[in-house]
């Protein structure tokens, strides 16, 4: 699991890469929050295009970042979600707290 983090006070993007489970969610959370709290962006964008696996630990990771960004009324989007992970996100009702965009299916 790795992440590239970039942005400014308008928009911060996190490109997640690899597998998100309980084992590695903690490390990635600390890295995101370091930049998140420094930038206080209006929009946090989590890009899932390179994520190969996610269980409910990933839901915890997303909901936790939503709580943080809410403290300055920021918005959250979760983009390029692979089909296998959109099922877990729907189950958690994430669409109530974030804009979710699934990955375009390659035919």
């Amino acid at each position: 699991m790795s992440a590239i983090i970039d942005g400014n006070s308008e928009r911060m993007t996190v490109w997640l890469d690899g597998e998100i489970d309980h084992h590695n969610a903690g490390g990635i959370r600390v890295r995101i929050d370091e930049t998140l709290i420094r930038l206080r962006p209006k929009l946090l964008s989590l890009d899932f295009s390179a994520v190969t696996f996610m269980d409910s630990s990933g839901i915890g990771l997303i909901m936790g970042r939503y709580k943080n960004i809410q403290s300055w009324s920021g918005k959250l989007e979760v983009i390029n979600v692979p089909r296998s992970m959109s099922k877990v996100m729907r189950l958690a009702g994430l669409e109530r707290i974030a804009t979710i965009r699934n990955m375009e299916e390659i035919k």
Binding site: A25, G26, S56, S57, I59, G60, K87, V88, L91, A92
Partner: peptide
Amino acid sequence: GERAGLGFAVMESF
């Protein structure tokens, strides 16, 4: 904390 409380719900639906 960061536990979503969804473990059994995921197991049930999957």
